[in-house]
Design a protein around this nucleic acid. Structure first.
Lengths: 199, 199
DNA sequence: CCCGGAGTGGACTCACCAGTACAGTACCGC
DNA sequence: GCGGTACTGTACTGGTGAGTCCACTCCGGG
């Protein structure tokens, strides 16, 4: 009950919606805009997303969430040396700098996620996966003695994720990546110096 | 051209809008809701805010921005000892924990601020004022030798602000203040240990 | 007291947009 | 090729909400 053609159309709709939202924000985008961009109509849209706009937005959020982690690979998966951490740092900054003022996921969350548990779950899962990878990296560094014993990998990873989120939030509203860079650098500096600091 | 009575009504409208937005989000709130809550009507609303909803939202954003800093006082203004920093930390965490899932300012920014320069200026100014106060605190600690010479107060303050923003963003989408606390603690720990760390 | 403008009430317009109805067409299994 | 189901186009509906209009009241100054 979903032919190859149908799947392609569905994908085209999600893509179109994601692009429109990136460019003009959730509120401004109408289903007609999505239809125009994807060369479809309302009937297709409701055919593939019977619950309408909300369901479509959820699909878009899911897609954007996946993309967030994809864009950090392969660096995020192999945080096993300070060089690797620096490469990852640069990749994160670059990714968000390129994205600029538009944070599709953030907007979707504040817009859709507040009241629907499903959308909230998307963010929660993303944060969890993200934090797990960072934590693994910190754990590895610690086991090699490159990060102090007194550092709790989970809390530190949480702090790093928060630092990135905040930096991105500020980037979104000011257009400058300075805060993001400062925040990440402070975290990395903290980890680096922790090995020799008091326990 | 604005009697005492008029000023009171205007204030009542802004208050009502702010409360409604806190409770139900920007998109969900209609001018009728605001009217009902403030015991006014559309005519008053447009009397005091000729440019309609956008102007009202801007006034609300302004008000919320002021409140953000107010709520951190007096701690924010006197970051002159580690005890004071800890009190401030607790005040920030408490403030946002109480605010919970609703970040009126954040929502207003993502909603209004993206395209209107005026709203963007509100955020920009808030961040600037905030960062200046934190920077002053770090500068003071450094001049007393409690923070390392190699720490750049401006960058560190930027990182602290970003950490808070990110912690709050995560608090908003997950309901847990753990990330906010971890992020702030990491920053404070960084500052504390910087005095004895390698330059 | 009375006049002008600030302040107020509420009905009305108008546009917009999510969602629906129902038509027709393309594709797949048999 | 044939039947049914997946797919697609389009016109329509119904509700909603921003912004307008105008008649009215209140209040302070002269």
């Amino acid at each position: 009950m979903l032919t190859k053609k149908g799947a392609a159309t569905r994908l085209r709709i999600v893509d179109a919606a994601a692009t429109e939202i990136r460019e003009r924000g959730v509120t401004a985008v109408t289903l007609e805009d999505v239809g125009r961009r994807s060369a479809t109509g309302k009937s297709q849209l409701f055919h593939y997303f019977p619950d309408g706009k909300e369901q479509l937005l959820l699909a878009v959020a899911q897609r954007e969430a996946d993309r967030v982690l994809e864009d950090q690979q392969p660096h995020l998966g192999e945080l096993t040396s300070w060089d690797a951490w620096d490469r990852w740092r640069d990749a994160v900054v670059e990714r968000y700098r390129r994205q600029g003022v538009h944070c599709p996921l953030g907007v979707l969350i504040t817009e859709v996620g507040r009241h629907t548990p499903a959308a909230q779950a998307v963010t929660g899962l993303l944060l969890e996966r993200w934090q797990r990878e960072v934590r693994a990296g910190i754990g590895h560094m610690r086991s090699e003695g490159l990060v102090g014993e007194h550092v709790d990998p989970d809390r530190a990873a949480g702090a790093v994720i928060a630092a990135i989120q905040g930096g991105v939030a500020i980037l979104m509203s000011t257009g400058s990546s300075r805060h993001l860079e400062s925040a990440l650098d402070l975290c990395l500096d903290y980890l680096r110096t922790s090995a020799s600091a008091r326990p």
